[in-house]
Each structure stands twice: as structure tokens, then as C-alpha cells.
Design a protein around this nucleic acid. Structure first.
Lengths: 344, 344
DNA sequence: GCAATCTGATATAACGTTATACCTGATGTC
DNA sequence: GACATCAGGTATAACGTTATATCAGATTGC
């Protein structure tokens, strides 16, 4: 029935000026208790909600945060999003999440929308092959921005990420300690910096043991792709006895594929994941993985953004968290090298 | 370096009035090719992005859509979100997704933020126990709104949902046809209308066969909970030979639990899921389920919202899609009723 | 008793767009 | 050549807030 109420409606009904009503709503200025309660009462009855566009335009502030990420439908990212949202919501902010599907065009579009709406802060996982013009865009509009996981070819933003090199080095060393000689790296797509760092860590551990023939296999980050990739990898490289994966989804998929081939993960072939998503522990068999605690990572990301918002001129900061090896049941001592060939 | 550019900056640099620059940006009015290209060129160089707050305030339009959902980190919902976003993005809209975690307070907060920002449209899965005041809020602000999955105790909004009663009826009949007599319903939390409808369908099929002792077991919608719940259910009701689940995640968890108990899904105990998420087909064993194609459902949801936006006065519509039984390997003929008891 | 102070409230100019109405000079019509 | 038409462009008032300055009375100080 009623038209959408504005401050003027409230003020008129309460018999005060718009200015007074505004002060009451924001809790500023000197207002008598009597008028205050009166105005609040009216506002409540009318379901008054201030127009954030007008407020933000005038005050230059916004409590909406934008977050573009490459894939929402991914348990690791989903947990990160929870961490980010929970922390920022308790601070009175609200996070809207967009899925760029790792497409730089789409991401550009989303960032422009955020800028158009003048969000109070931006979080992003730079899409693969993000062009310089997108960085330029962000630079021009100087919204507090923190990059996550990937730096996107620049160091001008605050950053929260993972010590990728160290992590895959640790993972690979774990397999080497179990006497594996033929270790493959499975997962990720070319040109993503995270993957390159991880491959470098993997290579470096191999080289420590004089192994100079890395086997590297691409694969998108989901279970089904992991299954297919593992099947392909095992066919092309039957000698491989263990696999360092670029993510738990891939690792879980890989284990499923091994089972289908009649091979036992952790006995015939060792598999190590990355992330430690919730499913990792309840997978069959439970997955050995490099744990990074996505929820906490999200909280840290949110924290860095808050600090940037509160102190815009502080020097750029960068935080890289370590992954921790969690040994479960998919890694085990290597079989003698004349191990079985895959059979269908 | 440069300040955030506004239309005035662009206009000044191009030597035209603000009005002209605005027309060019929006492609309206009569503008010569010469000035048009000139203005566009300047805008590009300056990285000009119009301020959506100002634009939307003046024009009364917004191409941002808000979507509150009870759980982002859920494959079914994630696929729905993809469907929604893909369709709306091709129509020039942008969808920001918020996770209410099924908490009505949180959802209220999120809806208020959407209203504050005057989104062009709203999608929501009413949180469990959503109070009337929230409906009132939505009503007052008359943003085009479509409810999804749950109606939230009202029929004043357009709605897209699932034929829940029919689906679980079909699922239960499938198990009955396989000669199961002890069929349990597993999953969901009390007070959610979707679950009640599904339980009703399940009951109705049982009653067709004169079975009047339903076994109903609560459980949140994730794999780990599904595991635990299945274990508890089997302990409390060892006679149960088959389970209709309230979601695939639960069903997959239930299968894992069965395997751990030494029981074979589809042979010792039949399990039927709901949703047909991508994992259902690659689970071990592949899951029999009631398929609803979340991606398409999302697209349909988006479509209904678009129609409402374009024609605000059209009568309220309601769409309920059917779920389709997909038989894979977790359902099979019932074992003779003196089947094994669970053993640890 | 008059200035100084304080309390509670208000008028008003922004914020950056867009829609409307209007203007100017050139071209066309008969 | 007088008038209508049109192309191309501009001035200006909104949109709903908030920040700043200001105001009218009441109270205080001495």
C-alpha cells in the first residue's frame, strides 16, 4: 500500500525536520530523548530503511564489500567465503560474492559494477590472464583492495596468499621420504601463478634427490576432471607411483579413478592433496593433504581489508600462510618399482 | 595519481557539456559522430566508470540483483547460482550472492542492505522461521522479488520451486517396487516446509502399501552429517533396508557410513538421493537420485525475475518443476528381511 | 540585567547522475 | 523571404541523503 518511505516521510510524521530525523537515525548530534524515541518509533512502524545510494553518495562511505572469485562452487573457496563474510559481518559490513569463472572479461565487468556502486572495499582473486587495463582501472578508482591467492602481476595491493612453493616442496619431500621415485604433479591450468609456484616447489624437492624428470599433468579443479586426468596420467605414465595434486577435489577424483582401475590409494599409488577441505577427512580413504584452513584464511583476508579501510595510507602488506602436512591414508611407502601396471 | 573521474571531468576534457557527455555514455539523444567518438575516447582514457549510486538514484533503475540463499557451500545451491548468474549476466544484470546460513536475523540484515542499495530485483530462499516482519519489509519496499525453493508462508511473491511431494513419492515407490518394506526418510531439519512436503510424499507412498510406520531422521545437509546420521539411524533401526534422503550430500555420506559398517549400498541397504548434483554420478557407488537439474532451475528462476522486472503488474506466478528418478547403483532389490545386522 | 553559554533543533548546500525542456543555427518549403 | 522543421547541443531541476552552519530559547554567571 504505502509508498516506499523516505526520511522526509518519517520526519513529517514525527513532526520534526529532515535534519533532525537524520541525526536520530545515525545517533549523532544533540537530540532530546523525547524526539529520539518518537522518531525511532515512527521509522519502525513505517519500515523505513535509509537509501544507501543517497547516504553513500553524500557521506562518501559504504559498508558493502565486493568479492570476485574464480569459482564459488568449490568447497575450498566456499569455506574462504564463510570466513570472510563472518568476520566482516560482525564489523557491520556486508560481502557480496561474484563468480568470475576465471574469465578476465567477466571479472572486469564485475569489478566495474563494484566501482559503479562505489563499494567500501574489494577482494579479488585476479582471473587468469588479467590484463593490465584491469589493474589500471582499480588503480584509478582507489578503492581499498586486497588480492587473494594470486597477485595478478602487481604488488600495489595488499595480498593474502599461500606459501605454495614451500607447500609442494614439503608434499614432495614426504613422498620422497616414503621412497617414491616417480612422482607426478597433477592439476591446475597453465598460466596460473599459483600453479607455477607449486610446480617449482615440487621440482625443487625432486632435484634435491637428483630427479630431473618431472611429470606434469593439467587438470581443472573438480572431482570429475581429477578422475579423468588420473586415468590419462596413469595410461601415459604407468611408472608413476605417487601424485602431488593441486587441490583436494582433484586428489579425491584421482583416488576414485585409482579404485576403478583396481589400484589402492596409499598402497599401490600414493596421492597427496592440497587445501584440506572438509571432505578430505571423510573421503574413502581419508586423504593425506597440505592443510591451509580456508576458513581462517578467509578471516585473515577480511582482517587485512579492514585494516586497509581504516588506514588507507598504510604501506602495502603481504601475508603468506604456510600449509601443514596432514598425513592420512592415501600416502604410504612405495612399492618395489616393478609394481603392477594398470589393468582395465 | 588522477582523482576518480566523473562525468564532469570527461565533459570538460572533451569540450562538451555534462548533458552531452551523459547522452553519449548512454547512447541516447542526437549526437554527432564526431563528438560521440571524442567523448568515448576521453572516457576510455580516463577509465571513467559512471557512479551507479547517482545514476540509479536519478533514473530509479538498477541492474544489480541480490540473492540470499541459505548455504552457498552446497553443490546444489552452487549450481543454481551459476544458472542464475549466467542468464542474468547475458541480460546485463549482475547478481550478488549472500549466504544467510539459514539464520533469519542474518537474512533480515542482508535484505535490508539490498533494499538500502535499491537493488533492481531480489531472489531469496526464505530462511527457516522467517518472521512476518521480514515479509512486511519486502512488501513495503516493493522490489521485484522471487522466492526460491521455499515460499516463506506467503503467496504474494513469484515462486520457483520443486514438486517435493511428487518427488519423494516417486522415490519411495521405486523402493517399494524393489520390495523394500522398511524405508526410512533421512535428512533435513524440522520446520522447513520443503522437508515437510517431502516427508508427506514419502508417507503417502508408504500408506499406499499399508505401511504406517515411517522412520524419520533429522540431519543437516552435508556429507559428514549424513555419515553420522546414517550410523545413528542404523543403530536405532537395524531393520531399515532402504533410505530416502533429503539431498545428495546426505545420501553420499550415508553410503560412506554404510561402507564403513561393512554394508554395500544398493545391495545390503538401498539409498536414494535428491538433487542429482555433479558428484552423484561419480560417487562410489554412483548414486540413484531424484534429479532436478539445478543449473536449469537457476535459469528458470532468473527468467521469472526478469519477467517480473519487465512487467511489474503481472499476476503472481508459481512454477514447480518435477524431479526425475535416475536409477544408478545405490538402489536394488531388497534382501530377505532377516538381513544382517550392522556390525562394527 | 546583559553577555556568555548551552541545548535542541533546523535550513541548506552538496554528492554525480539523468530527464526534461529549451536553445541556436542551418536547411527546407512554397 | 518568411516560416517551419530539424540536427546538435545545453541548462537545470530533481533523486534522498548527510555535513555544516546557524538559529531561537533557556540557563548561567557575576
Amino acid at each position: 500500500m504505502a509508498e516506499k518511505p523516505k526520511l522526509e516521510t518519517v520526519a513529517k510524521k514525527a513532526g520534526v525536520s529532515i535534519a533532525t530525523a537524520s541525526q536520530v537515525m545515525r545517533g549523532t548530534g544533540r537530540i532530546s530523548d523525547k524526539t529520539r524515541t518518537k522518531v525511532l518509533e515512527i521509522a519502525r512502524i513505517l519500515n523505513y530503511v535509509p537509501d544507501g545510494r543517497a547516504a553513500s553518495m553524500r557521506s562518501g562511505e559504504s559498508r558493502e564489500i565486493g568479492f570476485t572469485i574464480h569459482q564459488i562452487a568449490n568447497p575450498f573457496n566456499a569455506e574462504v567465503i564463510s570466513g570472510v563474510s563472518d568476520l566482516l559481518e560482525t564489523e557491520g559490513y556486508l560481502v557480496s560474492v561474484l563468480d568470475s569463472q576465471d574469465d578476465p572479461k567477466r571479472q572486469r565487468n564485475q569489478l566495474e559494477t563494484f566501482i559503479r556502486g562505489s563499494r567500501g572495499g574489494l577482494l579479488w582473486v585476479p582471473a587468469r590472464n588479467t590484463p593490465l587495463s584491469t589493474l589500471e582501472l582499480l588503480r584509478t578508482h582507489r578503492t581499498p583492495t586486497v588480492s587473494f591467492l594470486r597477485r595478478g602481476d602487481t604488488s600495489e595491493f595488499d595480498h593474502v596468499g599461500i606459501k605454495n612453493f614451500e607447500a609442494t616442496q614439503t608434499a614432495t619431500r614426504h613422498l620422497l621420504a616414503l621412497e617414491h621415485k616417480k612422482i607426478a604433479f597433477l592439476g591446475g591450468i597453465a598460466d596460473v601463478e599459483v600453479r607455477n609456484q607449486r610446480i617449482a616447489g615440487y621440482r625443487s624437492a625432486l632435484e634435491e634427490h637428483g630427479l630431473n624428470h618431472p611429470v606434469i599433468w593439467e587438470c581443472p579443479d573438480n572431482k570429475l576432471s581429477g578422475m579423468k586426468a588420473m586415468a590419462g596420467l596413469k595410461e601415459a605414465h604407468p611408472e608413476v607411483t605417487s601424485v602431488v595434486c593441486n587441490g583436494d577435489m582433484i586428489a579425491i577424483g584421482a583416488c576414485l579413478a585409482l579404485v576403478r582401475m583396481g589400484l589402492k590409494p596409499g598402497k599401490d599409488v600414493s596421492v597427496i592433496g592440497f587445501d584440506d577441505i572438509q571432505d578430505a577427512a571423510v573421503s574413502a580413504p581419508p586423504l593425506t593433504t597440505m592443510a591451509v584452513s580456508p576458513y581462517n584464511l578467509g578471516q585473515q583476508l577480511a582482517q587485512v581489508l579492514l585494516e586497509r579501510i581504516r588506514e588507507p595510507e598504510r604501506p602495502v602488506s603481504s601475508h603468506e600462510v604456510s600449509a601443514k602436512l596432514v598425513v592420512r591414508e592415501t600416502t604410504g611407502i612405495a612399492k618395489p618399482s616393478r609394481g603392477k601396471l594398470p589393468k582395465n
